[in-house]
Nucleic acid binder design. Structure first.
Lengths: 188, 188
DNA sequence: GATAAATTGTGATAAAAGTCACACTAATTA
DNA sequence: TAATTAGTGTGACTTTTATCACAATTTATC
């Protein structure tokens, strides 16, 4: 199953077998089940999760207990509470599983060690983060410039297959619209 | 003036004098004047700009020619069209100066060279990008969970002094609200 | 200092989106 | 398979926000 991680890294930086073994030694495997929390608000956040298969969401609950979804993660993507992970503080996000699956996770300590000892991996994480930054900027632009309908259509275009796996209520929460409004946008 | 860049980098990674000289040799100085474009939609994007002083905005114009502001950049921050810069494609954003100032810019080629030859700088850029990612995620959360008034107040709290230097029309564009609505939020 | 350009506030109205309530269906699970 | 639970659609209504228009003011420029 670790082949998935290797292929993921090698889309950016190629590795020798020895190097990949070394990289892998910094990760641990974690299975997860639907409804399970990988991170819960208030937890100390040690891990960044690379998802091998399955589906998860990262979300925040505001004072009125309304949930807002920041991210979905599926095979070949990473998920954590970045603020809490990188600053070694308490989580403000919840990361919860929507489908059973498996992940390889890495502690911040191990990530820093890995980056120090293998320049290629420092480069990998820099480039990966840069790509994520570009996607997030695109999402911000979509949020400030489009109405609910256009945001939904943009999402459909960007992740057509992912949408099929996610309840509309959660899509609405990701888009920043009420579920009723989204429902009317789709059927009309 | 390059001291500003050195202090900026050394908030994350310390450098020897020789190392900093080496880093600096990868940058060039560019002065800019109010109204000037550093990047215009359709340009080929070569440079990432580190701002020494002055004020700029990065924005996008949609089909209806409405402008939406993605970012403001001031002293000690970086600005470019990340999508175009990193993928070496044509700009979809405009970067325009709101106040005269100076910048140190680096081409993608030089950034990659620098990262390859000086591991510390690869680490610097990784950590800087991670911090930016955290801030962008915070902005996304704000956009999907707050109404116009709360978004404005959040911005005020986060960048109280910056707001003073920017016309309300542009603040509105950054928040994703019409200028009229923002005006009413502030006065009422 | 005069003129032009940019910025801002505000009224009237329209459009978009949110909220509450309820019924129906699909999916889980005991 | 019966009983819960989760997800969805839709009507009625309210609230928020956008749009258009115009006046006033501030700021830049010749």
């Amino acid at each position: 199953m670790s082949k998935i991680l290797r292929e993921h890294i090698e889309k950016i930086t190629s590795l020798t077998d020895e190097e990949f073994e070394f990289v892998l030694s910094h990760f641990s495997l974690k299975r997860f089940l639907k409804h399970q929390f990988l991170i819960q608000e208030g937890d100390f956040v040690n891990n960044d999760f690379f998802i091998l298969n399955g589906l998860l969401k990262a979300s925040h609950r505001n004072e009125e207990n309304k949930e807002h979804i920041l991210q979905f993660a599926t095979e070949n993507s990473w998920i954590t509470d970045p603020q809490a992970y990188n600053n070694q503080t308490i989580a403000t996000l919840n990361i919860q599983c929507l489908e059973d699956g498996n992940s390889l996770f890495i502690t911040l300590e191990n990530k820093e060690k890995l980056c120090s000892s293998l320049h290629k991996m420092e480069s990998f994480f820099r480039k990966k983060t840069t790509k994520e930054h570009i996607l997030l900027q695109r999402r911000v632009l979509c949020l400030i410039s489009n109405n609910a309908k256009d945001r939904y259509e943009d999402l459909l275009k960007q992740y057509p297959s992912l949408i099929q796996r996610i309840p509309k209520t959660m899509i609405a929460s990701y888009l920043g619209v009420s579920r009723e409004t989204l429902s009317r946008l789709i059927t009309n």
